[in-house]
């Protein structure tokens, strides 16, 4: 590509951007049907914007969850069929990345729960993948039609309180079952001692995801803030907290799982000194 061609492309691109910018200012916006309070309340509670799922009214977050599962299923299937059979002893870049990913979670599980790392590593692998990609999902702004007939952009599934409760509760149940399998009644008691864990996990996840969603909603609500700023708020923050939330949940799950599955060692009785 010559310098002249490059210059032409750049100028064309700049012209298109300028035209779009002018158009967004000149073209009148549709009157907002709901106030910012209503928008934010709906983002938190999803009371008004429901989506129909086989005749059942559900929050858009649940639809997001199913869409993400579908996408991950297709990606996993492609990798399983076309990539994994071609694995070699000396890995290529993509194979190394996949192995690094699995190795990372195996390492975390072995560090935090050295006695029973196998199931834990699989669980935190799936949980981290789910949290990470479901958080990134909100960036794409895939639209769905509500039962009212209005469009709604599909949010991150975990910014729906039901999704966050499901994730937190499930993680707690996983820890509890690990404790029972490893240490029977003692493990169950150890897990039940941390009865606040499912609530804290659920609401931490919900709060963290929701804060990102609210900031994004706020930014997009005001037209003037829709230029450049979403690049930072929408993309960088989303990427960052997708990573952070995955890391926080898997770390907490690993630590608690490691604690409850640790084999009980009887303390030697002190001999009576006569």
């Amino acid at each position: 590509m010559t310098k002249k061609t490059k210059k032409v492309i750049l100028i064309t691109f700049a012209c298109i951007l300028a035209a779009l910018l002018v158009a967004t200012i000149v073209v009148p916006s549709v009157e907002k049907e709901e106030s910012i309070q209503e928008t934010m309340k709906d983002a938190v509670l999803h009371e008004s914007n429901k989506v129909s799922l086989f005749g059942m009214e559900v929050n858009p977050g649940l639809i997001s969850a199913f869409v993400i599962t579908g996408i991950l299923f297709v990606v996993a299937l492609i990798i399983r069929i076309f990539v994994i059979p071609k694995f070699t002893i000396i890995p290529g870049k993509f194979q190394a990345m996949l192995e690094k990913l699995v190795g990372l979670f195996t390492g975390i599980a072995e560090t935090n729960s050295p006695h029973r790392p196998n199931v834990l590593s699989a669980y935190i692998f799936v949980a981290a993948v789910y949290i990470f990609f479901s958080t990134l999902f909100e960036m794409f702004g895939i639209q769905a039609v509500t039962t009212n007939g209005t469009p709604v952009s599909l949010p991150a599934p975990l910014s729906d309180i039901n999704g966050a409760i499901a994730m937190g509760g499930m993680t707690y149940l996983f820890i509890l079952s690990g404790g029972i399998i490893a240490n029977k009644a003692r493990g169950a008691v150890n897990s039940l001692k941390d009865f606040s864990l499912p609530i804290s996990m659920s609401f931490r996840l919900f709060g963290a995801m929701l804060s990102g969603l609210l900031v994004t909603e706020l930014v997009y609500y005001v037209q003037a803030l829709s230029y450049v700023l979403p690049l930072i708020v929408g993309v960088l923050f989303t990427l960052l907290h997708a990573f952070i939330q995955s890391y926080v949940l898997i770390t907490l799950a690993s630590i608690f799982y490691g604690e409850v599955t640790e084999p009980h060692v009887k303390k030697p009785k002190k001999g009576k000194n006569k």
Partner: peptide, 29 residues
């Protein structure tokens, strides 16, 4: 707006995803 039915659907979705990722990705790798 906590809905147990939706919580169960989320759990169902996660268990399904667990099975998919475990058998298609994690285990073979």
């Amino acid at each position: 707006n906590i809905d147990w039915k939706q919580i169960l659907l989320h759990i169902f979705n996660f268990v399904l995803l667990f099975a998919i990722l475990f058998f298609l990705l994690y285990n073979p790798i």
